[in-house]
Amino acid sequence: MKRIVVATLVGAAIASTPFLSGCANKVAYGDAQAVETVNTDFGSTDLQQIAAKMTDDMLAFPPVVQVTQQRRPVIFVDKIKNKTTEHIDTESITDTIQTKVINSGKFRFVDMTAVKQVQEQLDFQTDSGMVNPQTAVKIGQQIGAEYMLYGNMSSIVKQSGSTKDVYYKFTLKLLHLQSGIVEWQGEKEIRKTKTKSLLGM
C-alpha cells in the first residue's frame, strides 16, 4: 500500500513537470513608445503625453516665439509639486520636457541639481593645487537663469463599485525671474477609467 502511494506521488511529480515548466515567467522587450494600460496609476504614456503637450504648447506660444526668435534664453527647472496621493517622480517629467526643449534649440538650461558637484569641481580646480591654473575654469562666470519652469500635478480619484475613474491635471508655468511675470502657462488633462466586466465582455 505504501509502495503504491509512493509510486503514485512520484509518477504525479514526473507527469506534472512539463505543466509546471509551462508556468515559467517569460521576459521580452516591449515598445517604450507603446500605450500602457496596466492599471489606472500614473504611467509611461501619461508622462509622454504630458511632456509632448507641454513642450509643443510652450514653444508655439507667440510671446515665447518672439523672445526666442533672436536668442536662446536660459531657464532653470524648479520642482513640480506632486499634489496627488500617488508616488510620482515628477523630475522624470521635467527631464523629458527639458530634453525636448533643448533639442528644439530655442532655450538653454542651467541645472540646479548639479550645483553641488559643480562647486566641488570648481573648488578642486582652484584650491587643490593639482590643476594647471591656465586650464582651470574661472569662478563667477556662469550664466544666470532668466526664467523658471515650475508647476503642479494633481489628481481626482473617484470609485463606485467596480468602476474607478482617475483624472490627472498637470500645470506648467514659465516665470520671468526679473519681472515676476508668468509668461506662459500650460495644462494637460488625462482621464483613465477602470471597469470590471463580466466574463471579459
Binding site: 513608445q33 500605450v35 509611461s44 504614456t45 503625453q49 509643443d56 508655439a60 533639442n103
Partner: peptide, 28 residues
C-alpha cells in the same frame, strides 16, 4: 528627426465627432 522620441498617444472620438490632432516639429 529624433526617432523614438514621439510616443503613441491614445485618443477617444465620439460618433461623428471631428478632432484636430496637432504637433509641433521638434526643431527647425
Amino acid at each position: 528627426i529624433n526617432p523614438d522620441a514621439t510616443a503613441w498617444t491614445p485618443v477617444s472620438i465620439m460618433a461623428k465627432e471631428t478632432k484636430s490632432l496637432q504637433a509641433l516639429a521638434p526643431n527647425p
